[in-house]
């Protein structure tokens, strides 16, 4: 009688362990597993002409100057969007030509913790990985005697 009870308990325990092994990998990869991030998109009108730098661009002037300082001297902010997002969520702006520009945060890489960012603009698509707090630019669309420069910055949220 006692042996039968012990056997039943063992069988039940084994079943639970097996169920756990099967169930855990089957759970969907929720966004909660990925850290949240703050993604900022800034639409800049860059052109030649009298030197001008919008106040909001002063913190990124060194980076802007390195990339565009030899081509343009006038930098004005046309639109900006900044949101704290979960993995898979886009941060969008509308460009002056009516096109939608979206930067989609897609979580971090397991090895180096780089942030995966997808960019969508009209028929253009790109996938990049950047460091925490890093910035990159998409540029080239013509606009009012200059071009549109879109700065995308992403940083992990520290809890």
């Amino acid at each position: 009688m006692r042996n039968a009870g012990t056997r039943a308990i063992r069988t039940m325990m084994a079943g639970l362990v097996a169920a756990a092994f099967v169930a855990v990998p089957a759970l969907p990869a929720t966004s909660a597993a990925e850290p949240r991030a703050k993604v900022s998109v800034t639409v800049i009108h860059a052109k030649k002409g009298p030197p001008h730098l919008h106040d909001a661009l002063k913190p990124m002037w060194d980076t802007l100057r390195q990339s565009f300082g030899d081509k343009f001297s006038y930098f004005e902010v046309l639109d900006t969007a900044s949101r704290q997002v979960d993995a898979g969520s886009p941060v969008e702006v509308r460009l002056p030509n009516g096109q939608r520009f979206a930067a989609i945060y897609n979580g971090v890489t397991p090895e180096k913790g780089l942030l995966r960012i997808n960019v969508e603009m009209d028929d253009f698509r790109t996938k990049v990985r950047i460091h925490d707090g890093g910035v990159f630019f998409q540029a080239g669309r013509k606009h009012e005697g200059g071009i549109l420069v879109v700065a995308v910055r992403a940083a992990l949220l520290k809890d």
């Binding site: 990339s67 780089l114 460091h131 707090g133 890093g134």
Partner: peptide, 22 residues
């Protein structure tokens, strides 16, 4: 310290226009 702006471009695609990674 200044943030690391190193960016790894894994893919890009467009139906028209020219894409250049600088």
């Amino acid at each position: 310290a200044a943030p690391d702006n190193t960016c790894f471009v894994d893919s890009y695609d467009a139906d028209k226009g020219t894409i250049l990674v600088d």
